[in-house]
Write a protein that binds this DNA or RNA. Structure first.
Lengths: 247, 247
DNA sequence: TTTTGTTAGTGTTATTTTAACACTTACTTA
DNA sequence: TAAGTAAGTGTTAAAATAACACTAACAAAA
């Protein structure tokens, strides 16, 4: 594989919903170039690499994600390019990049993608996990490598907008059968705010793409919840009629 | 100026509101590589150029726009990168690019920006206009150069989303003093749909950042309209409270 | 000076949506 | 059988939406 040029990369912000802990996490790759970085997260970066000369940006993102994490068939969404000349902050980072890629690196413009996945279903490659990859809580991400904290902030904005506009398949985040509580929790984690349970359920009741299964949870130490499934076709149809709020 | 690399460019989609004609237009640059292109628009492209090695992407877009059109102090918004290996469609285009930039071109990834301006205020440089630059109606843009028709389609989507989310200063499009009819027309042109006049005005009445001036139009052959102005500070403040629609 | 043409401006109503709020039910485990 | 836990449910007041048609004020033409 020959790289398109040494100045263009893709980076992947993978959001994972941890249904157990009810937390939103991101997948980071651990470098070891700052051995004594106890406080910050300077060693943590998003999976990313240089773009090859025969692939589109989308293809590049898919490939890089697969190579670095084992994750495939993930719906990655490009959301922004980052090209500040000073986005490589430390000399150690530049040196690490040059060693890592085996090319001279001056400046790298990166095209950033994000994806939403369910941690317990799409698990990254186990041997990679042990080695270099980690899920970390999204609120626990100060001072990541390069400008990756900034990239994370922008990816969250994009995610929230896309989520509201239904441009994003957030339902990948839930198990096939889910409860309304899990659904609400997902909304709250993505949008970063809390909703009233009854009002939330009233709204969901109108969304014909969330269909009750007539089954119940079992084995839980409380009243068992109804289970629902998500109807992709109806969801796609429902996307049409959204241009009603302005100003 | 040395280029960062010959594979990375910026392109600027400049939307201009023509208050007279009440039309939304885009600014295109005319090449002459297809002398007999009578039907299509293969010779028309957005202003764009290669990124220099010492500038950020945003700086590059500002510079390129200024060099090619004379426009400056325009608020450009990055919305997407385009990197399909086949986005240069014709050999003639590749040859033109190589002649034009004086470098070998294989493939160019471009970072696309858009801006909204008022045609009668920010006029592009007159001598450039006569030569190479033209405003064309936005519905009149089939088959532009490279993948620029696709870029245009994506820029409109981004514009509409940003407009609804108030991430964009659409009020740059109007004269300092404007009528509600002009305002409504702007909304309709950007969002591509029509609104009821009375309901529109009711909504506007609640937007405290659109303030009546107590003046009227004059010289018009009908009942003169009230004039309004736009209050930037109040607008910025009003942006905070938008996270109320979900699902 | 009157008429004509043109756009500005305005209010009501029925329907839908929102937001706030608290108790009972059904299950497991102790 | 009691205690603990999350599920599930309805009302109401306030606000937002959507549909709808006539009069007012000006310039230009007759």
């Amino acid at each position: 594989m020959s790289v398109l040029n040494p100045s263009l990369s893709v980076d992947c912000v993978i959001f994972g919903l941890d249904t157990q802990e009810q937390a939103l996490k991101i997948l980071v790759y651990e470098r070891d170039i700052f051995p004594d970085d106890n406080s910050g997260n300077k060693n943590l970066k998003f999976p990313g690499s240089l773009v090859a000369d025969d692939e589109s940006l989308d293809e590049s993102a898919d490939r890089v994600l697969k190579e670095l994490t084992g994750l495939k068939n993930i719906c990655l969404k490009q959301f922004r390019a980052f090209g500040d000349p000073a986005r490589i902050k430390y000399d150690e980072e530049r040196e690490w990049s040059e060693r890592h890629y085996g090319v001279k690196i001056d400046r790298v413009v990166t095209i950033a993608y994000y994806a939403l996945i369910r941690i317990d279903e799409h698990n990254p490659d186990q041997k990679l996990i042990k080695d270099k990859l980690r899920w970390i809580n999204i609120d626990d991400t100060d001072n990541l490598a390069f400008d990756h904290s900034y990239i994370l902030a922008k990816s969250r904005e994009a995610l929230q907008q896309d989520f509201i506009f239904q441009n994003v398949m957030a339902f990948e985040l839930l198990p096939k059968k889910f409860t309304l509580q899990q659904l609400q929790s997902m909304y709250e984690l993505i949008l970063g705010s809390k909703f009233d349970k009854r009002n939330f359920r009233k709204k969901i009741g109108k969304a014909e793409y969330i269909v009750p299964l007539g089954e119940k949870q079992n084995g839980v130490a409380h009243k068992p919840a109804m289970l629902f499934r998500f109807d992709h076709k109806k969801f796609e149809r429902s996307k049409e009629g959204i241009r009603n709020f302005f100003i």
